[in-house]
Amino acid sequence: MQAERQTILQCQKGSRDAFGEIVNRYMRRAYGAALAILGNRDDALDVSQEAFVKAYRAIRRFDARRPFYPWFYRILRNACFDWLRRRRNRPRPGLLMDIPDDRFRPDTLVDKDEIREVVWEGIGKLAEKDREIIVLRHFQHMSYREIAAALDIPEGTVMSRLFTARKRLRAELDGRISPEDG
């Protein structure tokens, strides 16, 4: 934590090498979060890059006494949801050129494994809000306190939102995975 603080202070003085250390430390985690929200490898890489660039530009406003990742995660999630919004609003080129949705294709996300593929598909079918809380808990391994801080919601709400999201995920997987699996 102390070492990270020193690195952040160097970033705030304009050191790109120091920011490189931060990127190196968090890029895998950021990619995982973006992938689970966007469901596409190339998009996840692009958007996590964009989030790091935005974080660097805003780093002087960041309080270096606080942990970096929850702050960065808010930038990342905004970038992901902006991306999804832009994608939805993108003008369609026409019926003949309609581009198929390539998000949450399990074969591009996980090594061949039936259960993993089915779970990924299920996650892909969730609403963005439900998917995000699953991501934070299961991919980012955040505590309820960290999730509450990242989403700016009361800690007590985290449990109920997780319950709703898991219930919906369970319904998506119902009948596709037998009770003995997992």
């Binding site: 790109r16 890489l45 890059q49 996300l109 997992g182």
Partner: peptide, 27 residues
């Protein structure tokens, strides 16, 4: 069972070359 499955699904990581390109693109 559901939480155990969700915890373990994982994903294909980019290769080392892709990670290097990732930082270069940010820079």
């Amino acid at each position: 069972r559901l939480t155990a499955m969700t915890d373990s699904i994982g994903f294909i990581e980019p290769t080392e070359t892709e990670w290097r390109a990732h930082w270069e693109a940010i820079y």
